[in-house]
Nucleic acid binder design. Structure first.
Length: 276
DNA sequence: ATGCCTAACCCCGTTAGA
């Protein structure tokens, strides 16, 4: 048979432009990294950029090509979503449900092109010790996230969650698993909560397409020559709900911004989705 | 080894990050 049996719905279906490129990057202060972000947008031209750790209450003017929605906080946390050419966005929520007393700016959920986009800066959780509530806060936050995503699943709303999860999913995701034993990013409770998210039917976009790739990291400590020795961890992720996983074309980590002068300790991760 | 580095705040050291 010379011609495919299935008709092509649109002559543009196989155009290279018919995809959505979404990036996520913890910049460790938007004020300190605004020139890096401007360079990144210009060079990579993503349709959407998730940013974490704004570390401030304001968002500087960076690019007239992008529309910015953000939730800020003095000194700590803060997340933003940038969309190219001011495409239609609608803010659904600027906080994670489940604790009205939680003032930390770590969650931003928007509607974009029929998708729910969720940008998170999941709590670090260290130190793990009796007299600190940081680890319990992390676990509670993950439980709240589970409930929110479970709700979206039952409502059959297609979504993706991207950001700094502060979770090292497995041994392959860090240069020295032994060194991370007991750390909040690698604790058994953290892994249980991570697996609970996956068991909602979500996929870890990077591992779907790169199941065996080792030494693939998104964070390198400023200290002890971690970057030049590639002593990193993979903690920035995209989790996709099933219909979004069906649209996944590619997922990659771009280490180059980590090598820039006065760099963030994180580097961006990308996904590319086919258009409907 | 629990620091090594970096940023914010604002007092010139502390807190937090991961």
């Amino acid at each position: 048979m010379r011609h495919p049996a299935v008709a092509v719905a649109s002559p543009f279906r196989f155009s290279v432009n018919m995809s959505l490129k979404i990036a996520s990057w913890n910049v460790n202060s938007i004020k300190a990294r605004q020139e890096h972000v401007a360079r990144f947008l210009k060079e990579k031209n993503p349709d959407v950029l998730f940013i974490q750790e704004l570390k401030g209450e304001t968002f500087p003017e960076i690019s007239s090509d992008y529309h910015v929605v953000y939730v800020g906080q003095k000194t700590y946390n803060g997340v933003a979503i940038l969309t190219h050419h001011g495409e239609e966005t609608k803010i659904i929520s600027t906080r994670l449900a489940g604790d009205d007393t939680d003032e930390q700016a770590r969650y931003l959920e928007i509607e974009f092109k029929g998708l729910r986009l969720i940008n998170i800066y999941l709590p670090n959780g260290n130190p793990v010790q009796e007299d600190s509530d940081k680890f319990p806060y992390k676990l509670k936050w993950m439980e709240r996230l589970y409930h929110r995503l479970s709700q979206l699943r039952s409502e059959q709303i297609p979504f993706l969650v991207g950001g700094d999860f502060n979770v090292i999913p497995d041994d392959i995701d860090c240069y020295n698993p032994t060194a991370w034993q007991g750390d909040a990013l690698f604790r058994i409770e953290t892994h249980q909560a991570w697996r609970a998210l996956l068991n909602l039917g979500l996929s870890d976009a990077y591992r779907v397409l790169n199941p065996l790739t080792a030494n693939a990291y998104t964070f390198w400590d400023y200290q002890a020559g971690a970057w030049p020795q590639n002593h990193g961890i993979r903690i920035d992720h995209f989790l996709l709900s099933p219909p979004v996983t069906d649209r996944l074309l590619s997922c990659w980590i771009d280490p180059t911004p980590r090598g820039w002068d006065k760099a963030s300790d994180h580097t961006p991760i990308f996904i590319e989705l086919s258009e409907i």
